[in-house]
Simulated assay, not measured.
Amino acid sequence: MNPLTVLRAGDYPCMPWKNGGGSTQEITRDGGAGLDGFGWRLSIADIAASGGFSRFAGYQRVITVLQGQGMQLMVDGAPSRVLRPFDAFAFNGDSDVACQLLGGPIRDFNLIYAPSRYRARLQWFEHATPQRLFSAAAHVLVFSAADALKVSQGEQAPQLLGLYDCAQMRPSGGLVELTLEGHCCVVELSPR
């Protein structure tokens, strides 16, 4: 079993949006080849004003508001439900997407992945007491939405994650056992 790696929010590189309308902090990616240089990517973006989203042809997107009052998306001309904090929403990266902010700027969390290459699962958890989770995914990521999140893998000592830190595991076969205590998102990715 490979060890848990902690990625700190203060170390995330900042990258411009494809459409030039802002910037994104990239948390991590698979680094594989693809239309945009990755098979999957996790990131955080700040949206200061309503407007259009970049297209990612061949990718699926899952977005979650982290801070702010929320937003509503127009996806290929159809309105989404109102997206409030920690309500994940999935849409096709090929779609024509624009957002209408509800009461000011927001910060969001994004998973973008190539469904032709990866299966993905994204779930939000909020527990004050330790909870166990088991996964057989090739990549397991735990993104902290808390000032203090405890994460441990198997019998290893717990790691403390701060706000927007991320723990990354690459199990080398079989199940990975995680113990989580706090508010977080668990992302599981496996190659097809």
Rank of each mutant, 00 (worst) to 15 (best):
residue 143 F to L: 09
residue 79 P to M: 08
residue 7 L to K: 09
residue 67 Q to V: 08
residue 29 R to H: 14
residue 105 P to A: 10
residue 187 V to H: 07
residue 166 C to I: 06
residue 115 P to L: 04
residue 36 D to H: 15
residue 140 V to T: 12
residue 17 W to R: 14
residue 101 L to K: 03
residue 125 F to G: 10
residue 120 A to Y: 01
residue 33 A to N: 02
residue 154 G to M: 05
residue 15 M to F: 10
residue 68 G to Y: 01
residue 81 R to L: 12
residue 160 L to W: 03
residue 77 G to D: 14
residue 70 G to Q: 07
residue 178 L to T: 09
residue 177 E to K: 07
residue 120 A to V: 01
residue 191 P to R: 15
residue 167 A to I: 04
residue 136 A to D: 15
residue 181 E to R: 11
residue 7 L to E: 02
residue 28 T to C: 10
residue 99 C to A: 15
residue 136 A to S: 14
residue 122 L to W: 12
residue 48 A to I: 01
residue 29 R to S: 11
residue 160 L to G: 12
residue 48 A to W: 00
residue 187 V to Y: 03
residue 152 S to E: 13
residue 148 A to S: 15
residue 31 G to D: 10
residue 54 S to P: 02
residue 83 L to Q: 07
residue 99 C to S: 11
residue 78 A to G: 08
residue 71 M to A: 14
residue 88 A to G: 12
residue 93 G to R: 04
residue 153 Q to I: 05
residue 174 G to Y: 05
residue 114 A to I: 06
residue 115 P to G: 09
residue 38 F to H: 13
residue 12 Y to L: 03
residue 37 G to W: 05
residue 39 G to K: 06
residue 9 A to R: 13
residue 20 G to A: 05
residue 61 R to S: 00
residue 7 L to I: 06
residue 22 G to W: 01
residue 188 E to Y: 10
residue 166 C to G: 06
residue 190 S to P: 04
residue 84 R to C: 07
residue 25 Q to D: 09
residue 144 S to L: 04
residue 53 F to S: 06
residue 172 S to N: 10
residue 20 G to P: 06
residue 165 D to P: 04
